[in-house]
Nucleic acid binder design. Structure first.
Length: 129
DNA sequence: CGCCTGACGAAAC
DNA sequence: GGTTTCGCCAGGC
């Protein structure tokens, strides 16, 4: 799988066949999958990493399909920029997200990641397309 | 087709 | 300083 920056500086995933896949979503998933266990990042950070920082909404929105994505996407490690688990309601059960994070060693308080800044994983720094 | 809707984020009130 | 508005853009209706 190849990732390239074609026109407009938007990133797109291109299969070996040269066919363009559902760019945005797949790309978001791709980045999300890179998030280390026990770490978290924000929608905006992912968006910025993809070059579409102005549309963080799309990143979160893309997560709608993350459930039936393959391979599995650790969507629970993605929160908004304040560290709030705003997407918990979109999981199988509202508690799922929090439980998954706690399981990985991330502490949650009031639907917010404790020490968010410390656990924050910046795709811009860790990844390079 | 145009209009509405977001798991966001920043800026304007 | 909490609330609303707007930009963003793909998809559903």
């Amino acid at each position: 799988m190849v990732i390239s920056k074609k026109n407009t500086n938007k990133l797109k995933i291109i299969n070996p066949s040269g066919k363009i896949e559902a760019n945005f979503f797949e790309l978001v998933y791709e980045v999300a999958r890179q998030i280390p266990k026990g770490r978290v990042t924000s929608y905006g950070a992912i968006a910025a990493c993809l070059g579409t920082k102005l549309s963080a909404r799309m990143v979160g929105w893309a997560m709608n399909g993350a459930h039936h994505a393959n391979p599995k996407v650790p969507a629970h490690r993605v929160v908004n920029r304040k560290g709030m688990l705003t997407g918990k309601l979109h999981f199988e059960t509202p508690k799922k997200m929090e439980q998954l994070l706690i399981k990985e060693g991330v502490k949650i308080k009031n639907d917010t990641v404790v020490d968010f800044e410390k656990l924050f994983w910046n795709p811009l720094l860790e990844l390079e397309f």
